[in-house]
Design a protein around this nucleic acid. Structure first.
Lengths: 155, 155
DNA sequence: GACAGATAGCTGTATTGTACAGGTAAATCA
DNA sequence: TGATTTACCTGTACAATACAGCTATCTGTC
């Protein structure tokens, strides 16, 4: 029993290490490709467009809640995105205070382009992996995110 | 063959999605716990201490290279950490230009505390997971990071 | 050994992404 | 109807980062 508990703690420590490392690498990658050609879409704009595309047009508040960001942050993000023609603001017909944010065709097109580029990137990075391992990684990451998200919501 | 290629592209898309989501969640978690009690160690300080503890005292440049950060960024980080008593600067005996950054006992202690807290957090989040799944997650994340890192270095 | 170029680190400045506080207008509730 | 809440925006501040430019030192070449 002692050994099992130990092994488990070691595994948790490894997961902690690897997640921290992944975050660092991910940010470095984003920064590096951000300044270069791929300045098409900064990170926040990408996740906002992903969310709008997946869950449909919605209010700033709904977006902020989903993205775990302050409303003011999202306001400024969507302002910038509107300036760039990526989203459109329309008054919410059901609530005079609200404005509905919808992706524009140009926004969707750019999001798709970034997504395709990223997918290609992963294809490149994981070129040597077996399909099974790729599947496992996708599954486990999905479950990890579910677990993280449910905990975030719960708190 | 058509189906296989398709399946694979879907998997890559899922991995892209999940990594993006994990980054977003991770940042949200960091921000949330950053303002609260856990203001013990901001992110950069933690990774710097992790690295110093693992690889030994070293120069600002070496740190910057390892962390994929600009030297000036690391300079400021270590300045703040020195102010907080987490690291010490000593002149490099082998190179008059350099200063060697070493963790202080207080820095190591705080790093260990944060690490333990994070490990506990993962234990909490993954409470329902089987040991096998945890192992798989740790392994696959490790391999993903290796792949990412070797690509970053190669570029 | 002297000088040219490279390197280590620091400082100034700008940018980006974020939060919090405060304001206004609209909605909701008692 | 009046009080409270909500949605959004704006002002302000802060943290993390990069780039440019600076000085001190090192390294190689002649």
């Amino acid at each position: 029993m002692r050994d099992d508990a130990n092994t488990d703690e070691v595994t948790l420590g490894r997961i902690e290490t690897e997640v921290a490392l992944l975050m660092r690498l991910g940010e470095a990658t984003r920064r590096a490709s951000g300044t270069a050609e791929h300045r098409v879409l900064d990170r926040a704009a990408y996740v906002i467009l992903r969310h709008l595309a997946g869950a449909g047009p919605q209010n700033v508040s709904a977006l902020a809640a989903k993205l775990n960001l302050d409303g003011s942050t999202v306001t400024r993000q969507v302002s910038a995105m509107q300036r760039d023609g990526l989203i459109a603001r329309t008054p919410d017909p059901a609530d005079g205070r609200g404005t509905v944010i919808s992706p524009t065709p140009a926004g969707l097109q750019r999001m798709a382009a970034v997504r395709a580029a990223r997918t290609r990137l992963y294809g490149d990075i994981l070129a040597a992996w077996s399909p099974d391992d790729r599947e496992s990684l996708a599954d486990l990451l999905h479950r990890l995110n579910e677990a993280l998200e449910s905990r975030t919501r719960r708190r």
